[in-house]
Simulated assay, not measured.
Amino acid sequence: MASLCRQIIRGNALKGVLLNSARRGYADKMMPDPLEHATGLERKELLAIQSGDDDPFNMKVLKKAAGTKANPTLVPSCFDARIVGCICEEHSTAISWLWIHKGQPRRCECGHWYKLIEKTPL
């Protein structure tokens, strides 16, 4: 009985040594940096994020500012016009869509004002 226990313990110890050595072999290998194999828009996006621009394609939701005619919500764009969706009421299930053009502040149906400002492209 004692010899059987010794064999089981020795077998388990050897398995642990083999598993630990196999794990150590994979720990030395590193995944390549994503920037090394990225191309096109993905590379431009990674470079912009690395330089500190966390929203290079203007896709984040903007918080409404005061929204008055004197102090409208500023919407950045690389183009002369952009479509904006306004959730007029807090619990509304519908979105009011409107086009805003450079140099012309635009008023939504709810009375909130938006103005397009120029942002340099990537």
Rank of each mutant, 00 (worst) to 15 (best):
V75N: 06
K44D: 10
V84Q: 10
I49S: 06
V61C: 03
G52P: 12
L47Q: 14
G85L: 03
L74W: 02
C78S: 06
A70S: 06
W97A: 00
V84R: 05
E45K: 13
D53Y: 07
D54G: 04
H101K: 11
A66N: 12
Q50S: 14
V84I: 15
W99I: 02
G103Q: 08
W97M: 07
L46D: 02
G103F: 05
G103P: 03
K63M: 10
D53G: 09
K63G: 08
G103Y: 05
A70D: 10
T39W: 07
D80R: 14
F57L: 12
K102P: 01
T73S: 12
F57D: 08
R82I: 06
Q50R: 15
K102V: 11
E42G: 06
V61G: 00
R43T: 01
N58I: 10
W97C: 00
K64R: 14
A66R: 10
I95T: 01
I49P: 06
G103I: 03
F79V: 06
K69E: 14
I87V: 13
R82N: 00
Q50I: 11
K60N: 08
K63V: 05
D80Y: 06
R43I: 02
P56W: 12
A66Y: 06
T39N: 14
D53K: 13
T68W: 06
S77Q: 05
E90G: 04
L47G: 02
K63D: 12
N71I: 15
E45Y: 07
D54F: 12
G103S: 07
K44H: 10
A48F: 01
D80S: 14
E42D: 09
M59G: 12
L98W: 01
R82S: 04
K102F: 13
N71R: 15
T93K: 15
P72A: 04
L98N: 08
C86I: 00
G85N: 04
D80K: 14
A66I: 11
K60R: 14
L46W: 08
D53F: 07
A48T: 02
D54K: 12
R82E: 02
T39C: 11
N58E: 09
T73F: 03
V75G: 09
N58D: 15
A94E: 08
Q50L: 14
G103T: 08
W97H: 01
V75P: 09
L74P: 02
A94Y: 04
P76G: 01
